[in-house]
Design a protein around this nucleic acid. Structure first.
Lengths: 351, 351
DNA sequence: TCTCCAATTGAGAGCGTTCACAAGAAAATA
DNA sequence: TATTTTCTTGTGAACGCTCTCAATTGGAGA
């Protein structure tokens, strides 16, 4: 702890009586180092408290030991500014940091605009400045082919969250269609015959897939097109609330709502309360996301749990493997889970 | 956008017909560059899409353009693992990232153990590896004198959150004592005569100060020592719930609770519900923190809002100034705010 | 016009690592 | 034992920037 300030690889080499390169081999767990030498070097590293300088490593070897996670700037800032927080970001941090830390990497967060003009430029700049060993694209950036293509062209491993298209990339996703279907079936099973899907934004591929699953499940159940409404509320509380306010008034109103994120589900709760509809007896709600906040709502939300932290962790793990020269490109599907809480499960039968 | 891959300072210099050094001066807004030259260089930078390489900058000049934010590993991981999330982390990210981005810096997050043996070693390692230009210590690390001292000794600017002690450091804090006093007065004003403070951990200086403010306000109101209970619940839901479970049964129970964080306030809500105590009529609750989740609780929590994002932003701003050679060391007090929601404010008078 | 000082520009070294390659030692083969 | 082959180690260059200091330029003042 009381070591000299800046211990370099040279100091270690001198202490052991070997060359820089040998120490470097030990650090990087390279082959061709005699066991006895390795041990002496490791001892000296521990004794001197040597830690390799990341910048120098990057300069010398091209690896930065940095993973860059790219988020939707607009939505993230919007949420923050509204005092809403971003549980999604928190989860990413959890999955990403713990995984990176394990492997001696660091996770850096960046916000990038969705605008197709700005996105590539901003990403380019981040890359030029940070030179990360891998990049994680989250929705909706994961749906931007240009970005992914640019990264491949530059030889930067790229992982896409919520996307299952590629062969050149690491795609980490859950079965969005299947999840939406399960949500629908859950509601149908409880006797609902008219459902509405509060969609996020068509900009998000995940949103599209969920709409697809929503429609598919209704069709498979033999219900006509009018059994399923799709309303686009852009992930926003206010938009959702205002749409629902109209939608839930008519006599032919839907009795089951599936929301594309928790925020819109909260809006449903809010409107139900305002209109005097009992939840879940008169209106059942299933949300997508399952952020920590849902347990404090009234009543707690039934939700499809997205494996957010796990997806980011998996993406990091794959990117790190790739940066080490291994082949980890491919598709990774992670399981979702329907967590039943109190916005579904009415204690009665419908006609 | 279709620029060559790695544009270096040399490329820019060659394009303009000047030396590397001149370009470097322009980048760093250094003096002694003719206006005409500066303009030509800037034009070339834009045209070629040049972005300085952070690692190289760090190697050459010693600045890394990185700010390191250090958090309590145990508590953060605990929260994550429990699926609780860390709204605090999210807020930090918001304040820190937006401020850093503005100045061309990057924010990196690290988790460090509280253990006095491990903390300095882990921090040393992070420093050696990242060489950040500044470090933000959050509670309880901000109370660890050894850490702060080590940083000063190594010449690394250090900002401490929730601490108002130093002259050598950037201290960013709110008036914890005053906030606790305000919470107490708020409850007294509503007629409560027996209060309890659910304290976090004595490891946290902020906790200590709040206890101090709690006692002080009661004393100033002329109430005896038995008017104010202090229970140590370590920020945990379960611990708090179990303590309250006993505390709220007796006939002489407190009618007002002040919780050191939102999680413990939720526990109070939970226990009140279980014991059939109406909130706020039979039990009033004031929380400290005001994370986004509190608006979804039943009922929404009255809380002292900590200016978390603002504190981190301010810390970043100061650290960046210092790393630029300016003197920004000092104490920065940021205002808190009591936000009245529905866990206080009973519509009746007490005897 | 000449000198001198300030403003401007450039050249070379250095930061701490890894890379490519060369050299030496040990082991395997003949 | 002589000759490969394999394993181990070391050497110099390179990465892209900023630092220090030297060189050049342009005016102001003599």
């Amino acid at each position: 702890m009381t070591h000299r300030d800046k211990v370099t690889i040279e100091d270690v080499a001198r202490a052991v009586g070997v060359s820089r390169q040998t120490v470097s081999r030990v650090i990087n767990k390279g082959p061709n180092v005699k066991e006895a030498v390795r041990e002496r070097v490791e001892e000296a590293i521990a004794r001197l408290g040597y830690v390799p300088n990341l910048s120098a490593r990057r300069m010398g070897g091209g690896r930065s030991f940095l993973i860059l996670a790219v988020n939707d700037r607009q939505r993230t800032l919007e949420n923050w500014k509204a005092g809403r927080g971003n549980d999604w970001v928190d989860q990413m941090l959890y999955g990403g940091m713990t995984e990176c830390e394990k492997e001696g990497y660091h996770l850096v967060f960046e916000l990038i605009d969705t605008d197709p003009q700005l996105a590539p430029v901003q990403l380019s700049n981040s890359i030029a400045s940070l030179r990360p060993d891998g990049i994680i694209l989250t929705p909706p950036h994961s749906d931007n082919e240009e970005l992914a293509h640019m990264l491949t062209q530059r030889g930067i491993p790229c992982a896409r969250i919520g996307r299952r298209a590629g062969t050149d990339y690491v795609d980490v996703f859950m079965d969005e269609i299947g999840a939406a279907e399960e949500a629908v079936r859950h509601l149908l099973r409880e006797g609902h015959t008219k459902l509405a899907f509060l969609a996020g934004s068509p900009e998000y591929g995940t949103s599209q897939k969920r709409v697809e699953g929503f429609r598919k499940a209704l069709e498979e159940a033999g219900l006509g097109a009018d059994a399923g409404l799709v309303a686009k509320a852009n992930f926003h509380f206010d938009t959702a609330a205002s749409l629902l306010n109209d939608m839930l008034r008519g006599p032919d109103r839907p009795t089951g709502i599936i929301a594309d994120n928790d925020e819109m589900a909260f809006a449903a709760l809010h409107v139900a309360d305002k209109l005097g509809l009992d939840v879940p007896d008169e209106l059942a709600i299933v949300s997508f996301e399952d952020t920590p906040g849902v347990r404090f709502s009234v009543p707690p939300l039934t939700a499809i749990r997205q494996p957010t932290a796990e997806m980011i962790a998996s993406a990091c793990a794959s990117l790190i493997e790739i940066s080490r020269g291994k082949d980890a490109v491919g598709s990774y599907e992670l399981p979702f889970r329907l967590i039943e809480r109190d916005t579904t499960g009415a204690q009665r039968t419908r006609s």
